[in-house]
Amino acid sequence: MTLDVLYFAWLRERIGVPRERVESRAETVRDLVAELAARDDWHAAALADLSAVRVAVDQRLADMDASLAGAREVAFFPPMTGG
């Protein structure tokens, strides 16, 4: 499947792009993280500590075990600091 993968805040800076389109066979977010980390050192470093990473699937907060069946957009970002 084709996924739009978005990055925000320091994840965007470490990976070097705000978004990318990827061909993926991932069934869960965790599978996708493994695929992305295998792409290059920047992805691997940014996604090394998942305790510092939050995820949204199709713009809804999700967790690392969330299914990607039917998903089109996955975003990775640090814990949010609004308000």
Partner: peptide
Amino acid sequence: MDWLKSRAPFWKREIGADGPGGWVAA
């Protein structure tokens, strides 16, 4: 407000006199 602080997708970065600094930690 409690929800906005940690569930709304915003990220703050500090800007000092010398330019951009670090991202604010949750």
